[in-house]
Amino acid sequence: MNSLSYDVFLAALATLSLAFLLQLVAAMGGRSRLAFAGAAASGGTATLQADGGTNSSRRNASILAVNGFIFLSVALVLRAFASGHGPFTSMFEFSLAFAWGVLALLLFFERRYRFETLAIIVLPVAIGLLAYAATIPSGAEPLVPALQNQFLLTVHVAVAIIAYGAFTVAFAAAVLYLVQRHDSVGWLPRSEVLDEVAYRSVLVGFPLLALTILLGAIWAEIAWGTYWSWDPKETASLATWLIYGGYLHARVVREWRGQRSAYFLIGGFAATLFTYYGNLFFGGLHGYA
């Protein structure tokens, strides 16, 4: 079942890469069509065509992304069945789960805001995570004693990947905001919408990261007797949480919007990645994953 799971995972990676390519084509198409429209306006002879080609490649990209998400879900479920526990116990499984969270939140926000171009930043993140996973050992390993708490293991990590997915969406919206600062890019939503999407996704991620940390503390108390040990991963996730807290407070108390907030979110995403993969550099209690 594991090798089947691995094949489905590779299919997800391929599908998502194709989705990203189509997004790129659509974005390029959007730009050249804009140029064409400009030429048409000055020449005054050509009639403006609806950019059906661009829209349809964007729609196809979106459909492919959904397929990639389904493949990845299947790969994770197969793996969970094979190992008898949630797919959250090795760097390989973590990377797949993280990518899953990223895609889930992408699809949610993409639909909610009719904003398919969000994928142009989010997909490369998911693809990067999966590509990284493809380079590391994928063997399913039995659980070390500390991890043997099925319920907390599952909830703690599941909540975390949703939070991290939301922060990835916030990052993508922030990057696109910087591109769209002057409302000059035709194929992107207005800058205010981008700012709003970023904010909304932080509203999803921030409480969920708090919940992740709280569940982690509860678990640590049960397994080790101490709810907090300043283990590098704990510390990094707290720092990440405080960065997003800073972003929210700046928005509510100081009315920060737009560019400064966008840089905040890009910093927050760097911290998120560091939190996720920090144990690769540090070890610590989370050393097993």
Binding site: P145, A146, Q148, I222, A223, G225
Partner: peptide, 14 residues
């Protein structure tokens, strides 16, 4: 067990 301490009178044995 590692994930199941014994508690007595506010004291946990892990």
């Amino acid at each position: 067990l590692v994930n199941s301490p014994l508690r007595y009178d506010g004291i946990a044995f892990h």
